[in-house]
Structure formats: structure tokens, C-alpha cells
Amino acid sequence: MKVTLNGTTLAESNKTVVVEGNHYFPPDSVNKEVFNDSNTSTVCGWKGTASYYNANVDGNSVKDVAWYYPNALDKAKNIEGYVAFYKNKVTIE
């Protein structure tokens, strides 16, 4: 699986984990050079509190393009630290 934004690769891995239709990418497969932390957070009843990333590509910033669970609850420990992307903000193939 590969995630791109305006031709820039944000993540690429053949070891994603699919949860609720979203591919979660291992942390080491994510191009962290294009991300900065967002102030956004949300809570999922079974996964825990999600943190978000903004992406900066070619001088353009995309807010809350990706999310991850830094301290996932027990039922979601398999995706702790893994990063998922909003399908309407990036290309996933």
C-alpha cells in the first residue's frame, strides 16, 4: 500500500493493518519529514484517544491528514503507533 499527496509519498508498506476499512501503516513506513503534530485529538470507545498529523508538501499544508493512537486501548494494541490517512485528502493505492 502507498499513500501520496501531490506526488509526494507519505507512507508505503506491505505490512499495513486494516481496521474499519482503513489501512494503518507501521510507524517506520511513514515519511515523518512531511508531518507536524496537530492539536486535534478524538476519542474512540474501543481504540482510545487519537492524535493527528498535518502534512506539508510543496509549501501546501493539509490539516489533520492522518491519525494514530499513541496509547491504544487493549483491543487496539495491534495498531498502537500505526498511522492511518483520510481517503478524501490523499491518494491510497
Score class of each variant (00 low, 15 high):
V65T: 12
T4N: 12
S38F: 10
G21M: 02
H23C: 04
N60V: 15
N71E: 14
A76E: 08
Y68E: 01
K15A: 15
K77A: 02
K75Q: 12
D74L: 10
L73Y: 08
N60D: 11
S13R: 10
V65R: 02
L73R: 10
K89F: 01
K2H: 10
Y82L: 08
T4M: 12
A76M: 13
K77F: 09
T42R: 09
Y24G: 05
A55D: 03
T9E: 15
K75W: 00
E80D: 01
K87I: 00
S13M: 08
N88V: 05
N31M: 08
F25H: 10
N36Y: 06
P70Q: 03
A11N: 08
N22I: 00
F25G: 01
G59D: 05
N78E: 14
W67Q: 03
C44H: 11
T9M: 13
K47P: 07
P70C: 08
E12H: 06
N14S: 15
P26C: 14
K47T: 06
V30K: 10
V83N: 08
F25S: 04
D64R: 02
K47I: 07
M1L: 11
T91I: 10
N22R: 12
S38R: 04
N71L: 00
N88A: 04
E20R: 11
M1Y: 12
L73D: 07
K77M: 07
C44D: 13
D58T: 05
T9K: 12
V90F: 04
N22Q: 09
K89D: 11
K77D: 02
S13Q: 12
V62F: 12
Y86S: 07
D64C: 02
V62D: 00
C44V: 10
K63V: 12
K89A: 12
S29W: 01
C44R: 10
A66Q: 01
E80L: 11
V19R: 11
K77N: 03
N56R: 09
T42P: 07
N60T: 15
V3I: 14
S41H: 15
V83R: 01
A84P: 05
K77H: 05
K32V: 08
V19M: 08
I79A: 07
A55F: 05
D28G: 02
I79N: 03
L10C: 07
G7K: 02
K87S: 14
G81H: 06
P27V: 14
Y68V: 00
V30T: 10
H23A: 14
G45C: 10
I92D: 03
E20L: 06
G7A: 11
